[in-house]
Structures are given as structure tokens and as C-alpha cells.
Design a protein around this nucleic acid. Structure first.
Lengths: 348, 348
DNA sequence: CATTGGCACTCCAGACTCTTGAGTGCCAGG
DNA sequence: CCTGGCACTCAAGAGTCTGGAGTGCCAATG
């Protein structure tokens, strides 16, 4: 029983099971794959694979299906990243190539839809994390006597907004106060990273309160809003597409899809999951399978993810989520390709 | 066969069917509702109701289920908007009451989640339409020699952003150019409604090109971005929650939920649907049931929607989407309550 | 004339059985 | 180490049966 053949058998089992969604037996295996040995031999290999916990049978005398561990061995044993087929390449071009991208939101929106369509899974893209981004400009605009809106622009082009309500016990703000406050905030935070900018805020409030004590309340609520906006640049957001794919191939998940949908709606879960996945240095892609995902509702899901970012630096992550029984080679290739595309588009 | 009793029978059928999800027969009906007549009488009524197309039997010798038309009659015959139960009121307070709303995005996000939880359906909130909003401020910030970001702030607090790329054959822009362009754009558009502002833009580009012909290319791409942002204030966006509810009560939809999920992901469909629903003046809520919705994938869905807006003026709509077999009284009450809540919160 | 009890009829759902076929493990022989 | 053969297992599907819920119709009744 040669060692390499056993892996070939595992690979064949995974491929057939992914394709047919049915337990695969020894006879079917030798028919569909040129393994050069008889079914009996395959049975011996299967027994060994089952011994190792890589495959299992749903019931006695049924074919075998891969376990999480089996998928893991399959993925780790993949020779290299499969290049995209011409059809896939065309599909990417078609989905992403045309039209002028008008802003970050739209680029991500379009890209996530493309990824979902390519892989037939749920696609997720995390917004570029801006912990390293620098403050470019702070805009403060008055909408009503007691109502302002604050807009934070970072050098990566992300825009955060906060509405500010002046408390009723403080005096109403007037235009030149807004102007001056805006000036001071910009002076204090411009070109700073968000953590530095937050630190500088206290000083602004202090000197302001000393100079114009009657308006200290207004200054502090505005500062609080700015602090919140700065914090948000470190906080994560995401965009999502392809939810319908979850129920489409209805047999995808063994149990119900409800817990999966719930986990997805609870975006925090997905973001945390993406964050804790470290990419394989060779392929740039990481894979989590079944029980490797700690979250309870996702125990029969798998995630394929990759970092992306401008200039080689990973600023955020994207990926797909689907049943463990998914086409890993295709998914990995698609995620990798889309991550590269997005990195290129976002490069300044 | 008195006319009012027939409506009572219809109401009872709808209620039982919604509760049990099973066809309801004459005997079960008299047991669960105090109708004061015998099953045989009910059967006569049922025959009449079926004659009118309000109910139907899945097969001969099964109980009856309401048709779309039956639900419609049921909804139209509802005595009045059911007041919220104390439990529901508490739930709304709990879900929406606490915490300072920091900005529009977050208010809508939180509200839509609450609505989904209250009704156990998919909830949708359309962003406030800003066709009537006025330009408050246009900000133009330079990120790189050929890269700008443009931010549009309206007096309703909505913020739109566009990134602007200066074409490589035009000269790079310098700081004072940005400043001057920003000034001219603000002068031309401030306090204008978006359609007026769009109209004024051409003038800006024209005078600018005359004054500084070498930078006319930069001016026109910036103007295009601003025009796009202004257009977007009229275009619709929406926020969504509760997708998991679609599959939760798995028997909800007769066929698969896949087409419904697809329609929802195609947000345009939902937005168009919301837009074409006119609220009943009495309750402020409108209902579309089954085939009344033209979209093919939604033929066994129902939508309960309501407008909301600050100061009595409807600026946008919100609603829920679920199977035709839904608890209309509760849904209508919840949609109404949440719409009122949101109107109050957004009131300046 | 609406209402009611009775009755014959229909038909789905679930339980039960049977059969089939794919698949397995093991063993003895190459 | 591979292979063919053989006995064994078991889920899935096809039939069959039966109970019960439900209906429509009709004659009787207040």
C-alpha cells in the first residue's frame, strides 16, 4: 500500500464527493479515476484513511465521505494554486473590469458581488482597516442651531461622519465658533494617525475651554464625536454578497442554514473569524474548515480568506464562506485572484 | 347564512392557518373559536367563501387555506390598528431606547434590527430620500497629486463621498487650486436643492475653464464627481436585517426561499416595491400580498410598509417582508410603531 | 330559510413490509 | 502487496394498508 496512492485516493474521494454530494464507494472511484488498481485495493486504502480519521462512513456499508481532517489534508496537499481558467478570467474581467469606479464603497460592493458569483458562495470583504491611515481633514458643518455634522477624511479616502447635538443647557453655537473649532481640530489632528489624533484631542479641549469657557460644552461633544469617528477607523466594517447561494444548492449544509445566516448577520463573528486567519505565505490564502472554526453555528462551514491591500501591505481581508463540501481549488484560486485584483485597484 | 359571520369565519381561518401552518377544517374551527354554530353551518360558509375565491383547498377533502385574495379581505377587514402589547412596547424601548445615536447610519442600523426582531421577518429601511435636501457644504480634499476626495454634506445630515482621479494628461493639481475650486463649488451649490445644484455646476465649469484653461480637465472631473454625488442623494439606498428569519420557520415559504433571497439581494427590486406602495391614510401602513407583488420571485411573499419622515413629511419608507402566511395584525402594528419612532428620532 | 345531524365518500399521511443494489470486510491465492 | 470472490449489512425506494380528518349533500327541524 504505497503512501502516495493513498493521498491520491483521498483526493479522488474529496473531488467526487464535492461533485456528487454523495458518499463515494470503491468501485465508483476506480471507474471515475485512473488509479490503476482494483476496487479491493482501494478498499484497503480506504480502511487506512478511515483509521487516520480522514474519511468516514455515514452508516455501515455506505460509501465514504471526507471528514474535516480529510478536507484539511486535501487542501494542504494541493500541489499549488490552480491557475484560473480562461472562462474564470473572462468572468472576472466582465464583472469587475468595466465602468469607472467612483468610490471605495462602490468598488467593494461590485467586487464582493463578483466574488460571490464566481465561487457560488457567500462572499465577504472587510473594509480597509485604517489604523495606519492618517487624518487628512476634519470638516465641521452646522445644520441647525444645535445640530452639527462632523466629517473625518483619511488619506486612504475613507470618510466617517458623525452627527453632533449641542446639549440644550449650553449656548447655541454660532458660525465663527464652528469655524474656529474646525481650525483647531484640524491643526491638532492633521496628518496624524488615529491613535495620535485621539491623544491630541484632549489638549484641544483643554485650551479651548480655557479660552472660551462658555462654549466648553460644545467643544467637548464635538471632540467626543471626533474621537468616536477616529475609533471607527480602527473598527471593522464589511460588505457581503451571495447570501442566496447558501440556500441555492439546498443540500449544501448538513443541518439548517439558519445558524449560518445568523452568524453572518452578526457581522462581528465573521470579522473576528477573518481577523484570526493567518495567510499561508506561499499562496497568500488561508482556509478554515469545519470544526477548526470555533463558532458553534459554523461547525459545518468552511472559509477561504486572503488579505489584500495596497502596496503589498495587508490592510484588510476578504473571503468566502460555504459548506465544508466546497470546491476548494476553485475557491482558493478565485479568492486569490480577487484579492490581487482589489489590491491593484486600490493601489494609489 | 349571515354575511358578518362569513367574515368571522374567514378571520378565524386566517388566524388558525397562520398559527398552525396547516389547512383548517370546519370542526377544528368551531372548537377553537366561539362561533356559536355547528360545523355543518361552517361548511356552508366555507363553500361560499371558496366560491368567492377567498379560500381554497390544497386537495379534495382537506381543510381550507386562505388565498391571496382571502388575506387581502382579512387585512382590509381588520377593525383598526391593533395597539402594541406592553411586551412589544417594552421590546421596542429595549431595542431602540438606550444609547446615544451617533449618526444616521447607526440609527437606521439599530432600528432595522429591532424591526426584524419584533416581527420575526426580514426588515428593510430605505435611506431618507434627499431629493428635497439642500446642499450644506462641499468639501474637496487632496490625498495625492492626482487623487482627490469630494464630500457632499446635505442639511439633513447625509454625507456622500466620491473619489476623484485627475487624468494623467492633465497637469497635477496644487493646493491653492483645490482651495479655489472648493470655494467656487460651494458658492454655486450652497443651500440649493440637488437638482438646482446640478444645473449650477455647468456654469462653474464654464467660468473656471475660461479663467484657468490649463486646469479645465481637473475642474470637469471634479464637477462630474459632484454631479454624481448629487444624483446619489436622489437615488435610493437601504439597510436590511433579519435574513435568517426567512429560513428559520422553515415552512414559511411554499417553495424555496432562494428566489426571495435573490430578490432581496437585488436591492433595486425591494426599493422599487417600497416606492410604489401607497399608504392607507387611516393607518399609515400599506400591505401587498402575494400576487399583488409583480416581481416573479416574490409571488408568495407579503410586504407591510409605511412611510416615515421628520415633521409629518414622508422622506422614505420602511417595512417588512415575509411569507403571505404571516401575522398581519402584529406586523402592521410593529411597522407602524417603528415608523413613528423613527420619524420622532429623526425630527430635528 | 338558515341551521343541523347523519352519512357516504375522498384522500393524504404515516406505518409497515419487501426488495434491490451499492458498499463493505475479510480471506485465500497470485 | 495486490486481486478476485464471497458473505454480510443496510439505507433508499416502491408498494400496500389503514386510520382519520375532512368534505358535500340531504333530509329534518325550529
Amino acid at each position: 500500500m504505497t503512501e502516495p496512492r493513498r493521498l491520491a485516493v483521498l483526493r479522488a474521494i474529496v473531488e467526487d464527493y464535492v461533485a456528487t454530494q454523495e458518499p463515494v464507494g470503491s468501485k465508483a472511484l476506480v471507474e471515475r479515476h485512473a488509479l490503476g488498481v482494483s476496487p479491493a485495493t482501494i478498499r484497503n486504502d480506504m480502511a487506512a484513511l478511515e483509521e487516520e480519521g480522514l474519511i468516514a462512513q455515514p452508516h455501515t456499508s455506505a460509501g465514504r465521505i471526507p471528514t474535516d481532517k480529510g478536507y484539511r489534508a486535501f487542501v494542504d496537499g494541493l500541489p499549488a494554486v490552480r491557475p484560473l481558467s480562461p472562462a474564470e478570467r473572462r468572468a472576472i474581467d466582465r464583472l469587475l473590469g468595466n465602468g469607472e469606479p467612483v468610490d471605495l464603497d462602490e468598488v467593494l460592493e461590485r467586487t464582493v458581488r463578483a466574488l460571490a458569483q464566481l465561487t457560488h458562495q457567500v462572499a465577504v470583504i472587510q473594509y480597509p482597516s485604517l489604523a495606519r491611515a492618517r487624518v487628512r481633514h476634519v470638516e465641521l458643518v452646522q445644520l441647525a442651531p444645535r445640530r452639527l455634522v462632523l466629517v473625518l477624511i483619511t488619506d486612504s479616502g475613507r470618510v466617517e461622519q458623525r452627527s453632533v447635538e449641542i446639549p440644550p443647557d449650553a449656548p447655541e453655537v454660532v458660525a465663527d465658533l464652528v469655524t474656529e473649532l474646525r481650525g483647531r481640530l484640524n491643526a491638532a489632528t492633521a496628518s496624524r494617525r488615529s491613535d495620535e489624533a485621539v491623544a491630541a484631542l484632549d489638549g484641544v479641549v483643554a485650551t479651548w475651554s480655557a479660552a472660551r469657557p462658555e462654549d466648553s460644552a460644545a467643544a467637548s461633544v464635538v471632540a467626543a464625536a471626533l474621537r468616536s469617528a477616529l475609533d471607527a477607523t480602527r473598527e471593522e466594517r464589511m460588505v457581503l454578497a451571495g447570501t442566496a447561494n447558501l440556500v441555492r444548492g439546498a443540500g449544501g449544509f448538513s443541518a439548517s442554514v439558519a445558524p449560518v445566516l445568523e452568524a453572518i448577520e452578526e457581522q462581528v463573528v465573521v470579522l473576528r473569524l477573518l481577523a484570526e486567519m493567518a495567510d499561508d505565505p506561499a499562496s497568500g490564502v488561508s482556509v478554515r474548515i469545519g470544526r477548526e472554526i470555533v463558532h458553534s453555528g459554523l461547525s459545518d462551514a468552511a472559509v477561504v480568506a486572503s488579505g489584500y491591500g495596497s502596496g503589498g501591505e495587508v490592510v484588510a481581508r476578504l473571503g468566502i464562506l460555504g459548506p465544508t463540501r466546497m470546491d476548494y481549488p476553485t475557491s482558493i484560486a478565485a479568492v486569490r485572484a480577487v484579492a490581487r485584483y482589489l489590491s491593484k485597484v486600490l493601489a494609489p
